[in-house]
Design a protein around this nucleic acid. Structure first.
Lengths: 186, 186
DNA sequence: TTCTTACTTTACCGAACGGTACACATTTTG
DNA sequence: CAAAATGTGTACCGTTCGGTAAAGTAAGAA
């Protein structure tokens, strides 16, 4: 009996481990323990070791957001895309039970390793949201502020809901943010 | 030549190290390297090891906020205390260059070690802010929402300003939040 | 001055760390 | 079928991990 993986199967498993344990806390032994994938396999797919694993996870996350959130915000119907963002984000972060790995990496020294990917993720999120807000009728200056506020509020809600171990905080914060953006675009 | 410390001198040094490296990233060797304090001394003051060190740091942070932020919010002139909160918070977090250790601990597995202290810190912050908002004229329901929004926004601003390596984001977010609370209390 | 207390230094422990080497098993390909 | 490519398991490397033990040093109390 032998289980055979491919890279694409492993990345999501790694993502959850980095989320739960952080970059430093995610040791190779804990990774093999939780995934059942031995070191040999891991280094076969990620010759660059832990840093390459985390890099792959960040790229995977980025790709998901690009397709599910940023692109609609840039090109689809503005109001509809913004509404979809809130529900997608609420689902993705499992009502606050799941954290934003990019945000978590930004907080400590791990940022230095991945500063480009981290900066990009947020820049593009804010830009895409600003674009949608402007198409929905905001002037640029207000759209920029609101976009920053939205992304900022999501990150804060993740911290707070986990700190209080209360997932209602997350969904509630999202609703408040959604209302604020709605009233500003009509 | 022999440098002699006492516990109170060490805690702030530890705080900065935990902030920069996180709980798992802050290894004993990195602590001794950055502080110049040997393992022997550290274990003399903190027999419980790294966990006791981090606990002492959290208690120290909590005490500072209690005195500089929460108590004024509960007992002093409401509007004045809220205004003082924004400037104190902006100074404390050095315009976003310094992170909130409590928030950072909340994001990963470290939360499990310190859940009580982490929960307390935020609960008391929100409660104190709500109290001030109510004295400034908000009804309870609105005060609760605004208080959550304020604390939430601060945490998000820390994540975002570090992710973008742009400290103007932090101060700007704080101003936006301050304005929102002001308009709601008049 | 001597004793005690408080603190530091150094050497050390077993376990776990990230990473490597390579034989081995399994598919895929020709 | 055989051969090549792909993926896995295991043993091992030197280093660093958190933590301990105890000798040594300085300062205050008796």
């Amino acid at each position: 009996m032998k289980t055979v993986y491919e890279r694409a199967d492993i990345v999501p498993l790694l993502a959850e481990i980095f989320r739960e344990l952080g970059y430093e806390g995610a040791t190779l032994s804990r990774i093999t323990e939780r995934t059942g994938i031995g070191k040999g396999s891991l280094y076969h797919f990620f010759p660059g070791g832990k840093e390459e694993m985390a890099g792959a996870v960040l790229a995977d996350i980025d790709a998901w957001f690009e397709e599910a959130v940023y692109r609609p915000l840039r090109h689809d119907d503005a109001r509809q895309a913004i509404a979809a963002m809130w529900t997608n984000v609420n689902d993705y972060f499992r009502s606050g039970r799941r954290i934003c790995l990019v945000g978590a990496f930004a907080l400590d020294d791990t940022r230095e390793r991945f500063s480009a990917a981290i900066g990009d993720y947020f820049i593009r999120w804010i830009d895409a949201l600003r674009s949608a807000l402007m198409r929905a009728g905001c002037v640029e200056r207000e759209a920029q502020t609101l976009a920053e506020e939205g992304v900022c509020g999501i990150q804060g809600a993740l911290v707070l809901s986990r700190a209080l171990a209360d997932e209602t905080v997350f969904s509630r914060s999202l609703e408040t943010l959604a209302k604020r953006l709605e009233t500003a675009t009509r």
